[in-house]
């Protein structure tokens, strides 16, 4: 796995797609998970979804009951990317907390 930092949009998209979900569902889920902090705009989300499809980190699935809305789900490679990102985030938090422990707030 390449050593890259995922964008917040990509991280929340991947986290949202354990089960198939459409674009609007991803927006709502990201907002819910982050207690309203992360509001993915549709244009940004669209660009990120297309890039993730190209990279093979997510795949599109036919919507249920003839629903025209396209749904997406995470792939094995997508999961690997999430695990690698979690590893990186843990390192950031660990170093951040250790080194700022003595700082005045």
């Amino acid at each position: 796995m390449e050593n890259i930092a995922l964008t917040e949009a990509v991280f929340y998209i991947l986290l949202s797609l354990e089960k198939p979900l459409h674009g609007y569902g991803i927006m709502q889920n990201a907002e819910k998970l982050s207690n309203g902090r992360v509001r993915l705009a549709a244009g940004t989300l669209y660009g990120a979804i297309n890039t993730l499809l190209e990279k093979g980190w997510i795949t599109s699935v036919p919507g249920e009951n003839g629903d025209r809305k396209k749904e997406y789900v995470i792939t094995e490679n997508g999961k690997k990317a999430v695990f690698a990102e979690l590893e990186r985030l843990r390192e950031l938090v660990k170093n951040g907390e250790e080194l700022t422990g003595g700082w005045n707030k």
Partner: peptide, 15 residues
């Protein structure tokens, strides 16, 4: 339905 933005990251705005 809430604030309406097309882009929430700088890169998309740049593009």
């Amino acid at each position: 339905e809430g604030p309406f933005e097309l882009f929430s990251d700088i890169e998309s705005k740049l593009k």
